[in-house]
């Protein structure tokens, strides 16, 4: 109400807020992160297109000798089914599905809720397998320590340039399905490396085949180096 003359007119007032729109999500993400850090659990947000091989990467890790030395668990986000969580459980990874309905990404609250149903404190590494999508999952902090993007060789070398938001946030790109390379004679790792260096300030990649197990050692070494120290159990 106008207080200058008492006329009763309203005043148009600009109010500077300058706040992150997703600060509600960020608050829950910080809470998740505190949990993970306090328990000494490495939390990994695993992202990538549908079919890029996110679930297969985790399955293969368990088949590989090195995978059995780490205690791992997972939640996996999917629009409609619990298939990925079932696959992970069959592979020996305690896991829980987060069915998002129409949501194209996981948010911190969904992850927090899922943590109540899984014995994650006993783990060395906790994987948050995000919804298959190269855009939306990059927007939401979940409380993870590391972002890993799975990129299959059939997707092409230029994907990082087309989806810079996702790849900028990646700590590691796992190039999957390298057993298919004989069928893809034009695939150019130098071109992929160059594309990553234009969107990732610290480009890092490992090449793996879930089918043959090639590259699993390097992937395991990366995870191990990333694990929180000072709480070796």
């Amino acid at each position: 109400m106008c207080e200058d003359c008492g006329c009763g007119d309203t005043k148009l007032v600009p109010v500077d807020v300058h706040a992150r729109i997703l600060e509600g999500n960020d608050r829950v993400a910080r809470h998740n992160r505190e949990h993970f850090e306090e328990a000494g659990v490495l939390a990994v947000n695993l992202m990538g297109s549908p079919g890029s091989g996110k679930t297969a990467l985790l399955e293969a890790m368990m088949r590989h000798a090195g995978g059995r030395t780490l205690r791992v668990g997972a939640v996996s986000g999917d629009l409609a089914t619990e298939r990925d969580a079932d696959r992970l459980r069959d592979a020996g990874i305690p896991s829980r599905a987060i069915t998002t309905g129409n949501a194209c990404h996981l948010d911190a609250e969904m992850v927090h809720e899922a943590l109540h149903h899984i014995a994650w404190r006993e783990l060395d590494a906790f994987f948050i397998e995000n919804v298959g999508n190269l855009v939306c999952p990059a927007v939401y902090d979940l409380g993870q320590d590391a972002n890993v993007v799975a990129l299959s060789v059939t997707e092409g070398e230029d994907k990082p340039l087309k989806y810079p938001t996702m790849f900028r946030k990646a700590n590691l790109v796992v190039v999957t399905k390298i057993d298919l390379l004989p069928a893809l004679p034009d695939f150019d790792f130098d071109a992929l490396r160059d594309a990553l260096a234009r969107v990732m300030p610290k480009p890092a990649m490992v090449r793996v085949s879930a089918r043959s197990g090639e590259g699993m050692d390097e992937w395991m070494r990366w995870l191990d180096a990333r694990r929180p120290r000072g709480r070796d159990r």
Binding site: M1, T10, K11, L12, V13, P14, V15, D16, V17, H18, A19, R20, I21, L22, V139, R168, P201, K202
Partner: peptide
């Protein structure tokens, strides 16, 4: 040195104009 992002990742509510 690896580059640092100066700006370009913001999702910010900056200002509201309201009648009071």
């Amino acid at each position: 040195e690896p580059a640092r992002l100066v700006c370009g990742d913001e999702i910010i509510l900056e200002r509201i104009e309201m009648e009071i």
